[in-house]
């Protein structure tokens, strides 16, 4: 079995993996990182979205061996020193989650969306989150949360 080294949420792991093992199963079943859920098997729902070397990927569509030498950030690694990331806080403030199953992927996709467009319009947010499905919220509050999160993140960046 190939041996890979991968950093997940700041911790380096060395694992022997089957070549067919999906990244999401590496995270969930080998590393105990169950914060990233699986919602489908055709990469439509986006629930399993994580950051791979700084860009969002659907971890059900990446093989663990492809993450060899990479840096993975999951929903569990977003907060700093026990406090939530501004996007997580925005989702809380705007009631942008109900059952919460899509939330980890939605938050990761939202953060990724802001890399290209730090002040997205409603239209841009809706288009940008097209690959992440939510069955509870009707997306209204998710859109509000992403806008709020963008403002908070902008403030954090521009703060002296």
């Amino acid at each position: 079995m190939p041996r890979i080294t991968v950093t997940v949420d700041g911790i380096a792991y060395e694992e022997d993996v089957e070549p067919r093992l999906l990244l999401v199963h590496l995270l969930r079943e080998k590393l105990g990182k169950t914060g990233t859920p699986v919602g489908c098997d055709t990469s439509n729902c986006g629930a399993c979205t994580v950051m791979l070397d700084g860009a969002s990927v659907k971890s059900c569509s990446v093989l663990a061996v492809q993450a060899d030498g990479c840096d993975v950030v999951t929903i569990e690694g977003l907060g700093v020193n026990g406090s939530m990331h501004p996007m997580q806080r925005a989702f809380h403030e705007e009631h942008a989650l109900q059952c919460g199953y899509c939330t980890p992927g939605m938050v990761m996709a939202a953060i990724d969306l802001l890399r290209d467009d730090p002040e997205p319009s409603e239209e841009a947010i809706r288009q940008g989150l097209e690959g992440n499905l939510c069955r509870c919220t009707g997306y209204c509050n998710i859109v509000k949360a992403v806008r709020r999160g963008a403002q908070e993140m902008g403030r954090t960046v521009s703060a002296p």
Binding site: T34, G35, P37, I75, L78, M84, Q88, H92, L97, G100
Partner: peptide, 19 residues
């Protein structure tokens, strides 16, 4: 009121059956 349920769900400390 903002929900008491959220913190766990937002930070991945969830208890889905598959977890």
């Amino acid at each position: 009121r903002r929900r008491k349920e959220d913190a766990r769900l937002l930070t991945g400390r969830t208890r889905w059956t598959d977890n």
